[in-house]
Structures are given as C-alpha cells and as structure tokens.
Design a protein around this nucleic acid. Sequence first.
DNA 1: TTGTAGGCGTTATCAG
DNA 2: CTGATAACGCCTACAA
Lengths: 357, 357
Amino acid sequence: MKRSSKNSVGLADVALAAGVSTATVSLALQEGSRISASTRERVRLAIEQTGYRYNRAAAKLRTGQSFTVGLLITDIANPYFAALAAGAETVLDERGYMTFLLNSNDIGDRQARQLNKLMEHGVDGVLLSPADGTDLTTVQYLVDHGVPVVQVSRWVEGLSCDVVQPDNAALAAEATRHLIALGHRRIAFLGGTPSRSARVERLAGYTRALAEAGIAYDPELTPTGPPTRASGSILLRHVVGGTIPPTAALCYHDLMALGALQAARELGLRVGEDFAIIGFDDIAEAAICDPPLTTVHIDAESIGRSAAQHLLARLEGSVGPASRTIIPAHLVMRGSCGSHRFSPLPGAGSDTPGKRQ
Amino acid sequence: MKRSSKNSVGLADVALAAGVSTATVSLALQEGSRISASTRERVRLAIEQTGYRYNRAAAKLRTGQSFTVGLLITDIANPYFAALAAGAETVLDERGYMTFLLNSNDIGDRQARQLNKLMEHGVDGVLLSPADGTDLTTVQYLVDHGVPVVQVSRWVEGLSCDVVQPDNAALAAEATRHLIALGHRRIAFLGGTPSRSARVERLAGYTRALAEAGIAYDPELTPTGPPTRASGSILLRHVVGGTIPPTAALCYHDLMALGALQAARELGLRVGEDFAIIGFDDIAEAAICDPPLTTVHIDAESIGRSAAQHLLARLEGSVGPASRTIIPAHLVMRGSCGSHRFSPLPGAGSDTPGKRQ
DNA sequence: TTGTAGGCGTTATCAG
DNA sequence: CTGATAACGCCTACAA
C-alpha cells in the first residue's frame, strides 16, 4: 500500500498523494463513475504531481481487454495494402485502439507464427488478409478463443468470420466485357496464385464474360504466378509467345499489370494500340505510367476503414453470423487499352458501348 | 494454486497437469535453465494437453519488458515510409518483437497523443520519424523514462537519441551540381516545410552547390509547402510564374516532384528538354512516370532495418552517446533532366558530361 | 533440481 | 461515495 520507492508510479502512489484509496483513484479515472467532484479534483492533482501513467498491461491482466488489434497483411510495401493499413489504423486509433503491424510475405508458416504471437500478446481482434496456403486451423484457433477476425480483400474457405472485399467477379467481368466490346477475342488472364480467393473470383468473372460473348475459354491464356511485377513480365512473355497469342490481358492486379506493360513494350508491342492491358487496384503508379493503365479502381483505404469498423463492432459485442461486405469499385478507363480514344471524344462512337451489368 | 475453472489456461493449469509447481513450469519454458530433461518433457506434454498459451501481458507486469516497439511515422501511404516500415518490421519480427504502427499525419498534437499511448502500452522502444512541429518534451519524456527512441529520416533539434538517415546535404549538393553541369543557372528548390530537418539539410546542400558555382541564392526560388503531390504542382506553377523563371527544379521529394512534373507538362514545358526536375527517394513511380524521374535513390527499407537494429541494440543495453548513422544513397539519372540523352548513347556528347563529385 | 511465497498495477466485489 | 481486499498470470528470490 505504500510502494513509492521502486520503479514506475502506479495507482498506489497517486492514492497516497491524494489521501484516498487506489480503488477511488481507479474509479476517478473512469468517466461515468459516482465519485464526488472534490475527490476527483484531488485525484487529478495528485496524478499531475506524481507523473502517473496508466498501465495497460496491468489493466489487461485484470480485465482481459488490451485495446490492441493485429493487422496481418501480406505485403505492406504494396501500395494497395499501405492504403488499407492507413485506413484501418485511422479508425482504430480514433477509437482508442493500437494496431500491431505484421507482414506475412504471403508465407503460410510465417503467418501461423504471427497469429500465435498475436495471441500471446492478447490482441482483442485481428484484421487478416490471409496468406497463400493459410492453414485453416491456425486462424480458427483465434476465433474459437473469442478473438474476432475480419478478413480483408481475401478470405479462406471454411472460415466463419466477416469479410470485407470488392466484388471481384463482377468487376473482372466488367473489365473483360470492356475488352470484348473493344473487339478483342483472345484475352489472357494473368497471374495470381491459384488458391487465393481474389484470383478465383476474378477468374470466374472473366470466364463468365467470355462465355456470355460466346468466346471459348482457353487455359493456355490463364497462367498463374506470384503477385509481383517480375511475374507479370514473365507471364506476358509466356502468353504472347504461345501458339495463338492474345491481343489483350487482364491482370491479377496493377503490380503485375505494370510488369506486363513493361514486357509488352520490350517486345515491341504498342500498348493501347496493338495490345490492351487492364489491371486491378488502381495504385498511384497506374495513373502515371506510360500509357496510363486502365484498371479497376478499388479504394483500399475504405476497405481498411470498413474492416476496422466491423472489427470494432464485434469487439463491442455484436454477434450475428459472419457478414460479407462489398466495397464498391469501378473500372477506370485510361490509355492502356485504347478505350480512351472513344470515350472522351463525343460522337466518335465506333464501338458498342459495352453495357455495365 | 488450483485455478483451472475460469477463463484462459495459465501456468497453474499446466503445473497441475504436469504434477509440478508453477515455478518449475516457468523455468522449463526458458531455454537455459537447470531443469531435468524428464520434467521438461512432462511439462511439454502438459502444455499440449492443456492448450496453454504464454501470456505476455502478465509477463510484462512482472518483468517490465513487453517485446513491443512503436513505429511512429508521418504517412504509411507514402511508399517511402511503407518500405521503411517493411524493413523495420522484418528485423523486429525476427528478433521476437511486435510492431505498433502509428500514423501521425505529420500533426504534432496527434503524435504527442500517440507517444502517450505508446507509453501506456509499455513499449520497449520507439522508432520515430518526427512530425512537423514536434514538441521536444513529448519525446524527451520517453527517453527520460528509459524508453529508447531512434529517429528515422528526420530528427528534431535538441533531442539526444540515435538518428538513421541519408546524408541529405551531400545528396542535394550532388543533385544540384548535376543540374549546374547541365548548364542550368536558375534552379528552384521546391517544398518541404521549413522546420523539418530533411528540408533544412537538403536546402543547405543546394545552397552550398550554388555558392560553389558562383550562383547567387534567390529566396524566390525556394518556396516551402507541405510534402504532397498537390503542393508540388502549386509550387512549380508559382516559381515558373515568377519574374525570372527557373529552368530546373530540385524537389523536396518524389511525391512533390511528380506533382511538379505534371504541372510542368500542363504548362506546356517539355520536361527533360525545356525544363529539368530532380526528386528525392526514388519511389517506384519515379522509374515509370513520363519522363522517368531523375532522383536521389534512398533505400528506405534499409533505413528501416538499420533503425530497428540500432533500437534493438539499445534494448539490449548498449549505452554510449547518441549515434548518427548515414545510409548510403546516390543520384540516379533518368529522363526528367535530360542527362539520359548523354550517358546511354556513346559518342553523342553534345554537352559537358557533368562530373560526379 | 524443485517448491513456496510474494508482488508487478489494475479492477471488481463487497462492505461501510 | 469510498475503502479494504482479492484476484488476473507470470517471474524470481529464497528455501528445501
């Protein structure tokens, strides 16, 4: 009861200085508690004098709440995830939570270790963009132990928790229809690893649009690969070197599209004229590269914000079944598939407009 | 001593299951402790059976160590800081630490609140890229209370703690000399807020190079502004609209340079021919914009890694005075200041080659 | 080599 | 409205 000799200053020291009990000080610290104004003031003063600092680790031990959240993504250096992180962090910070940043580098084992650490640190919840080859049980474990998980951008099969993502299939279909409307018949779909949900969904949309137009699906045009620039280059060279080369490519995301764009140029293709490329995400680079990239604009920051809000709702006791939240997105036409020549010029219509679904 | 009824499973439960004391279990958990192999095995088994999970909050309460670190930067959406964060997180994760991500948005007050929260959560150390208008005392407080701080990319006057950064002055001087060698005499220095160390240092290098060449310093050519694309555009328009417009601009960083580049094009200037632009950072966009941006390549990821290593050293007890670590960087010539026309084409030399310092 | 007995700073329960 | 007091789960002398 009279520990003011040692290290940090705690409730006991404040209590001593204010001439009250630690319980009173604790109460005085919370907003809506029945403590007389005068004691409250005395406590406030004592806190200033002693230089007291609230100790959340101790509080957590007692209450089980840490006011921390894990943000486990695959690659913070990807501008898409950086924006997502910014959105999530902002919301969480506003509500008094701190955010642990973890990079899985898309490695399942690493992610498993990190989920573990998150548990040891007692996070209240987790925002997860699952890595390739995610082991279901590693994340189910959290959920079973009362740690809500919200999946962002991607999701793993068989896991019952909230998801926040764009409507990948519809968007890919829209992009594909756009290419078809421009006259393309041989359209490649480049990259992404086979297992990941975002690729599966985008591929499904692509396939659907193809089928609608009566175009046969050719597996040679849909090679898979890691979501990197380099892989985008390689895959483009691969399909262009095939027996019947495509005239257009829809890419798993912008990073790959940018790689593909570079490779196309190196092959002597004039992107936007000889060859069309469409990406996903609309990262900053997409608007400024040459030619600027037609891409599906996804507001990563608002995905981050929304995911954080859903997580907070769960933390505040919202129950209900797992929800799936779709963040609106849309195709933005730029130079890389030539469509810019049609839309900006009124009355130049030499093409079917390609109805939006 | 026999709490296995309640919530989470703790050492006591494991001890019960293994038929030993909690102390023994605790000891068995640490590597180099004198515990018989047999008990160790029994404990291992009991841990599996019980589904025990280490509780770091409890450990922290006892030991004072949390194995967490704060990474407090101005803007995670800036690719430079995203790369820095990736580097830091990787090193920290390897060594068993978790990283809190905080975005100050370059707002001093926000940063102050966040430093506070960091203390409440009991972080072991902080990686800080100080916001504009940082109040010295808010960060000094941490240091005084035994929480080591390492400053990254920028630093605040009067704070005695490690700094990891590029040699801004030398690099800015090199870039400026390059422009001078290309024949430019009216060179602007665009943006950055006046108080921030990175700007002060870069401006000093710019001024020094000017002086060396006998070029008078003109304050009209060095307007300040927030470090954003938009501000880059505005400032370029501003100086170009001045009485004696510049023929070249060195920009506070790439984001601003990109904005300036766009504005220059909108003004009908052919960047790389009529007008030269140089940036700082070498973010991915710099290589791919049109024309590609000549810029100072700074390896943000290795700044992040190095800063994390310095922090870890402090956490492990390294004392010594505050250190300043310079991360090597260099000018990379691309299209935005015309120099590319000379170097790649052998024997095309219609210009002075522009000696590197 | 293992067990006992606090105590870290906070909150919650229960009296007064 | 306020005060004792007992946990929360872990670590660490010190004792056995």
